[in-house]
Design a protein around this nucleic acid. Sequence first.
DNA 1: AAATTAATGTTGTCGTACAACCATACATAT
DNA 2: ATATGTATGGTTGTACGACAACATTAATTT
Lengths: 259, 259
Amino acid sequence: MPSFPEFKVERLTVTGSLADRVTDALIQLTKGEDFPPGSRLPSEMSMASRFGVSRTVIREAISRLKSDGLVESRQGSGVFVREGNMNTPFRIDPSIMDSIHSIQQVIELRKALEGEITALAAERRSKAQLAAIKQALKQIDTEVRDGSVGTVADITFHRRIAEATGNPHFLSLIEFLFNFIQSAMQTARGYESTRPDLAQEVKDEHLVIVDAIAKQDVEAARAAARHHMDGSSRRLDSIDPQNLSRNNSGLIFKPASPK
Amino acid sequence: MPSFPEFKVERLTVTGSLADRVTDALIQLTKGEDFPPGSRLPSEMSMASRFGVSRTVIREAISRLKSDGLVESRQGSGVFVREGNMNTPFRIDPSIMDSIHSIQQVIELRKALEGEITALAAERRSKAQLAAIKQALKQIDTEVRDGSVGTVADITFHRRIAEATGNPHFLSLIEFLFNFIQSAMQTARGYESTRPDLAQEVKDEHLVIVDAIAKQDVEAARAAARHHMDGSSRRLDSIDPQNLSRNNSGLIFKPASPK
DNA sequence: AAATTAATGTTGTCGTACAACCATACATAT
DNA sequence: ATATGTATGGTTGTACGACAACATTAATTT
């Protein structure tokens, strides 16, 4: 490839905006020893002059820290570091989701959860929830018949099961994970649509899950879900990895506009 | 008359600062249908006049949305809704963690994870990781002998196991959950310290876990972890709920104000 | 001594101004 | 005709000043 004349540019932009940099700096401070939980940060004015930026920038940075629960501001008094890190959320950095390995690590998280979720759903599901699960199962076939690969319906199916646990955190967490593995599911289901044997395999596994939930057989439900997860990752592994690696810099989702 | 898409927000929150309220409103907008992923929000100026607040407030709200990954701003161009919600973190609202029921829902999440974590740890642990786990187990006794209830060491023990899975997300998630159930663990271990039979029960359960990990017996590890979790919740249930409801309004950690 | 008031500092909000940047349309040159 | 340069308006990023709302402390009064 014709290379440009060698030129090095040293950090054209050291980082993003000033607010971004100050945010990072403040996070460092709150996690360091200088400002332990409960202590008060310097005033916005003094920090502004200290960092050499305007008070506006400081306020935007503090606003982000408040959003992440790291600090708490009291008008007239100051900004205080919050106790504990109960307020800092659980995140997965999307920028590291480029490799198959990273995606499979998230899938592994889901695998760990799905067995217990299905078991709890079998134990606690109401009639209405069971009906919703069955309806979601049918919806998968409907979508597939209409030409889609059925990823949305597949996710809805598992979402309904998570709802049936009665524990809202299961639903939140599963939905959070789905955001990362959706693209993998998409390609997996796309591949399965070309392999009737695999497609039938998936349908059978789903059926066993629903049966166990219907009969409220906790252990059978757990086993069925685990079997389904194992099958999913086995089927996913059998796909040419090339299909998975074409996600550019954190943008995993495709336009997805089939017509 | 500047014309921008008609957008409506259900109801401005009546409490909190203006930036708080506008943040909620904007979150609703980005999740609604008026501004699908990829679309551009109205300019800060027009939103300021639309909401009847200054541009500063709008900017602070947008700053929080950027921090949560909901939007992305491009200087000179505008603020755009990001595709997917892969960037929005998983949170548990600390303000609802006042009731025992809420804490047990989080514990249930941990129960679901711990079995698979221990199984994976047994499968993949290195010698060094096994040593770290054993060391953490000893540390529990050390802390107890020194008068502490040993919660910190107990958490470290399970953290080491999560590390041995090789999947960093397990560690992050478990640590996140520990923030919420730490107070429950504290009272549980405090109660166990007055009941030598229960304390021994816990030690035995821990030993079985470590043995299974040492022998790399995956199924035994899973069973041991599940048994430990069942035992923990059983022991927790046997405590007078009065002891748990003492920590109210999200302030679980002690003030810890040395002067 | 206690209660009240004043003073001072801090966060919350507003407004203006300008810089940096982008997108488009337009004009110019090759 | 195509490509390049330029003007222009709109948008975000940053700065500064001003005041309101509120908290804390010091000073004053009772």
